[in-house]
């Protein structure tokens, strides 16, 4: 069993190894046949180009800003509505929850066109708000927060109400401190989604200074650098390294989050 699993995991990770090894090779070596495994004349030139000529730090900052705002917005808005849906009664509650859940099945391309028309009418093309606004309110987040909050005993909340605490106070002082696990899950899922998001930033960020990492990499890989494999492989390594490092460090939470929602 170990041998089979080891072979399977090696095959799974092979593309990453190939990416990493290739990023240290020169263009000449990458084009040489038969292919070489270990870099024969190792070079850092591919990485140096990304930092000096291609300004990857700018794209990195864009990706980070968009991801952080998206995460914070989701954590706040989803837990607020989650609290209302789980612990308060109000007319329209069932309908609202159902409506939000149904949109989980809506394919991205359905809202894509009107969204783009709206963003361009508002003059938001190539701005940060265009990149994060459409992702601030995720249905998955509502589901996650509501499900967890349903499990918080009513007695705790009732006790706080009897002590005269207002709902906002109960929310910030009683409910939120208990919500560590779903907040971690939601934060991870949202960060991952935002960091790897590609299609929307590709159309919404039309000036180079607003590109996120995947957009920059994709445009460089179709432009004049299309055959500069070393450069592209180094770019790929730079794009995935932060998220893979985060994943390995927090793997327990990542795996929990998949098991909790069934959604990557």
């Amino acid at each position: 069993m170990y041998v089979l699993l080891l072979l399977a995991v090696a095959a799974t990770l092979l593309p990453f190894a190939w990416m990493l090894l290739g990023s240290f090779k020169t263009q000449g070596e990458l084009l040489r046949r038969p292919v070489t495994w270990w870099p024969q004349e190792g070079t850092l030139a591919n990485y140096i180009s990304w930092f000096t000529e291609l300004h990857i730090d700018k794209f990195f900052a864009n990706s980070l800003i968009v991801a952080v705002v998206t995460v914070l917005g989701n954590l706040l808005f989803c837990s607020m509505i989650g609290y209302a849906l789980a612990k308060m009664s109000f007319p329209g509650k069932r309908f609202l929850f159902l409506l939000v859940m149904v949109t989980l099945m809506v394919p991205g391309v359905v809202t894509f066109v009107p969204l783009f028309v709206m963003v361009s009418k508002l003059g938001l093309v190539s701005t940060y708000p265009a990149l994060f606004l459409p992702f601030l309110a995720s249905p998955v987040g509502v589901f996650l927060m509501r499900q967890f909050m349903l499990g918080i005993p009513d007695s705790i909340i009732e006790a706080a109400r009897i002590d005269g605490a207002g709902e906002f106070r109960i929310f910030t002082r009683v409910v939120m401190p208990l919500c560590g696990p779903p907040l971690a899950t939601l934060g991870i899922l949202t960060f991952l989604g935002s960091w790897n998001n590609f299609l929307w930033p590709l159309v919404a960020a039309q000036s180079e200074d607003m590109y996120t990492l995947p957009v920059a990499l994709s445009l460089f890989s179709t432009g004049q650098n299309a055959t500069n494999y070393g450069l592209l492989l180094a770019g790929s390594v730079l794009v995935i390294t932060p998220i893979v490092a985060l994943f390995v460090a927090l793997q327990r939470f990542f795996i929990q989050s998949v098991a909790a929602t069934g959604i990557k």
Binding site: A8, V9, T12, L13, P15, F16, W18, M19, G22, L192, W195, N196, F198, L213, P214, V215, L217, S218, S221, L232, L233, G235, S236, V237, V239, I240, I243, V244, F247, Q251, F254, I255, V258, K264
Partner: peptide
């Protein structure tokens, strides 16, 4: 086995 899930499609497409 889970690592491919977290990586950007653009980056893995290159390789």
């Amino acid at each position: 086995f889970y690592t491919p899930v977290v990586t950007s499609i653009v980056a893995v497409a290159v390789v």
